[in-house]
Structure formats: structure tokens, C-alpha cells
Simulated scan of single mutants.
Amino acid sequence: MTENQATIRDGIATIISEIEPGIRQALDNDRDAYLRLIAVAAEIDAEAGGTLRDSVLSARAAGLSWENVGDVLDISRQAAQQRFGTPALPADGRVLRMHPVTAFDEMERLDEVGKHGWHSVGFGTLYHDLVHTDRQWEHRRVSVFGSRSALEAEGWQRIGTMWIPWAYYARPTDKPALPDPAKAS
């Protein structure tokens, strides 16, 4: 076992103990404790998988090739591209690309288009892909290194995958969308 693997295992054990206090003792005499352990391990696995996906997409946005990514993961470039390639677009395929946007103006621009029923469903370097609904939308940008479970508990939906150092969220409001100024002529 490498030093990194040992550190990861210790970290996972600490996380499990924090999420399920007393689980180590409960495993000795409570069969249901194993089900709680599985549930926590599944959450850790999902979060780690999301972090891997976000890291790969960030590497691609930084200009690294699928071959570079595949080499690090010990898989072919084709396998890396198939596993982490472009996420699916909405079923109707109608997407408006808002670009260019930067970390300095994207949230203000998302707030404005959100009032008119547009919300982000994907993003990349200098852009957000938007779809339209009949509701107003709110958007949030948070650090990928912080806890996002409180946002998700409040109905925020993660947009695409995380983009280190950011994660993006959107949620509909109870207000109807304002008329779209682009269509008001």
C-alpha cells in the first residue's frame, strides 16, 4: 500500500466515524450497522467519482489531451473520452450558449437571464449553456472544497459537473418568468 493510499483510507475511516458515530462498535453486534456503513460508503464513492470527473474536465479545459488523462488513469485515451466526455444535452436539444462570461461577471449575468426563465445546464471556459422554462431561476457558485449538502437539501440542483475550484447550482423559484427581452420586438 502506498503512502497516499494509507492516507486516503485513514481519511475515509475518519469521515465514516464522523457521519456515523459509534459505527465501529455497532458492527460487532448490530447487523443493520453494516447497511449504514454501505450507505455512507456509497455516498463517499459518489462524491469521489464526482471529484474525479470534475478534475478530468478541469484538466481538459486547461488544454490537456485525452491521452494525458488516460495515461494518469492507466486507461486508453478513447476510454477516458468515453467515460468523461461531453455530458448529454436536454432532450429537446434547444440550448442557448451565453458567452463570453468570466468569474467576474457570470453570476450577475446568470441572475439576469434567470429572471427571464433561462437556467444553466452546463458550463465551460468562458460560457454557460442555458435552457428556458416558464419559471424564474436562481444560480449559485460555491467552492468545490466546501460542503454542498445544505444547498442540495434546499432544492438547489447541481449544474453539470463541478469545475475546480467551482461548483454551480440552480433552482427554480415560484415566480413566472419575465418576458424575454430578446423576443419582445
Rank of each mutant, 00 (worst) to 15 (best):
S76M: 04
N68T: 15
F145N: 09
H132Q: 15
S58E: 06
D28L: 13
V144Y: 05
T7F: 09
G155V: 03
G114M: 01
L126G: 10
Q81S: 14
R109F: 01
G22S: 00
E152S: 03
Q5M: 11
G49C: 12
Q157W: 02
R24K: 13
E47W: 03
L37D: 05
S65L: 05
W66L: 06
W166Y: 14
Q78N: 06
Q25T: 14
A80T: 00
M98N: 08
M162F: 05
F145H: 11
M107H: 04
P179G: 09
A184T: 13
P100G: 07
I164V: 15
G146K: 06
D54W: 08
K175E: 15
A39Y: 07
L151V: 02
V40C: 04
E43W: 03
R140L: 13
F104V: 09
G85P: 06
R53A: 13
T7N: 14
G85T: 05
G122Y: 11
G50H: 07
L151N: 06
E154G: 01
L89A: 15
T7V: 12
Q81Y: 01
L130I: 07
A184Q: 14
L37A: 05
W66V: 02
A80W: 00
S147L: 06
H132N: 11
A103Q: 12
V131W: 02
G70Y: 02
L151M: 09
L73H: 06
W163R: 15
S185H: 11
M162G: 15
M107I: 10
A91N: 07
Q136I: 03
S17A: 15
F84A: 00
A39G: 09
S55F: 02
K175P: 04
T7Y: 06
L126A: 14
S185T: 12
T2D: 14
D32G: 08
I44W: 02
A33N: 04
A33I: 03
Y34W: 12
E43A: 12
G49T: 06
E20R: 08
D10G: 13
D111V: 05
D10C: 05
L73Q: 01
D134P: 01
W156D: 03
V121Y: 09
Q78M: 10
V144T: 12
A41K: 03
W137A: 05
E154P: 01
A59L: 10
L57P: 00
A41Y: 02
Y168W: 11
D180I: 07
G124P: 07
R158D: 02
D30K: 10
I44H: 05
L151K: 07
P179N: 11
V101N: 03
D10M: 12
P172H: 10
S55T: 15
M98D: 14
G50V: 01
D74C: 10
H119Y: 13
S149I: 12
E112H: 09
I12L: 14
I12C: 08
Y169G: 03
E154M: 03
S65W: 09
A41Q: 12
E106R: 13
A46Q: 11
L89G: 11
V69F: 02
E43V: 08
I15Y: 09
G63Q: 00
G93I: 08
W163N: 11
I23D: 08
I164G: 13
R94N: 14
G70K: 03
R83Q: 12
Y169H: 10
A91W: 00
A61G: 04
S58T: 15
D174W: 00
I15A: 15
R171N: 03
S76E: 02
R148W: 11
D32Q: 14
E106V: 08
G114K: 04
Q25W: 02
R9C: 10
G63C: 08
G117M: 07
